[in-house]
Design a protein around this nucleic acid. Sequence first.
DNA 1: ATGTGC
Length: 377
Amino acid sequence: MGNSVLDGRASAVSGDGVITKFYTSTAWIEGRAEQQLEEIAGWTGVQRVAAFPDLHPGKYGPVGCAVLADRIFPQLIGNDIGCGMSLFQLDLPVRKLKLEKALPRMRILGEPGSEDQGWRLESVGLPTDMFATSLGTIGGGNHFCEVQTVAEAEGSTGLDASRLYLLVHSGSRGLGNAVLDSVPPGAYAGLQEDCDAARAYLKDHGNAVRWASLNRQIIAERAAEALRADLTRLVDAPHNLLARHGEGWLHRKGAAVADRGFVPLAGSRASASFLMDASSHGDALGSLAHGAGRRYDRSSMHGRVRAKRSDIEGMQRTPFGGRVLCEDRDLLIEEAPLAYKSSKAVAEDLERTGAGHRVAEFHPLLTFKKTRDGRRS
DNA sequence: ATGTGC
């Protein structure tokens, strides 16, 4: 079972599927994540797997990989179908942002979106009442809406360091969850594309992908409105989705679509995020890491960080002089910077293995996670 | 991850 190829240029066989790892021996990768990688590679129908340095264990398989198969495995996409990162430019100069004023205004993101969003759903070909009350809400877990500054950027990016940017990480909320729930028993063994269950899944999955993308757009619009700014979307990069790939099906799980432009690689709330240019590496399956990746699982975080009042207050500030709006104590702890790998180390491994390279670095100023009253946020 | 489970 030798699958120790680390340079992204060669591959090793494990079971049926060929695994290519886009990380070096310096990467923080849990043994359990690599076990999951090998298990998946051994599933009947799996042909190729690309694994990225943000790899970490997940419920049905590792997060941070792209899996090419001759059939459809709905569980490899998971419940948050269409989840991804979108990057927006605000027409707001950095020098105009007053953190203490902007922070309370961002609270609007913790409230349900306006009821009048049927036309937005219709505009992307979705039923006007499809999970309409959740539209424009970021959800829980690792989701966020972040105001960023440009620390460094290549000219080719067209980024303007005097402006503010928004990075939104969110997905399809209850919709994607309902889609995974609706899959018939037995589907986890793999669906052939010419069966009714596969056709139903593909249709529902497509809806969830469109819903999630619209959701990120509306979240950004709400944040921009709170900051009294206009916005332009620069990147929309989903990382949990299924796509046709040649004759097969490409399952991206925490692996960003990297064959249609730059890809955001999110750091923790207290570290840099990067904009990556993927190198069209033949074995990377048109994908790239989507973020720093989890270092420690949620439950173990409660034993790893102190949570006195002063500690909690400290976690609401960042080394960049930024602020974190997260009034859920457990979430604040579970998403502490310690819970994540180094985004810089992840980016460097992508560069060393030829999967992609950094074209810009962003630093967070304001991170919106959750308000106390926003029970449905 | 989840208009949130025991």
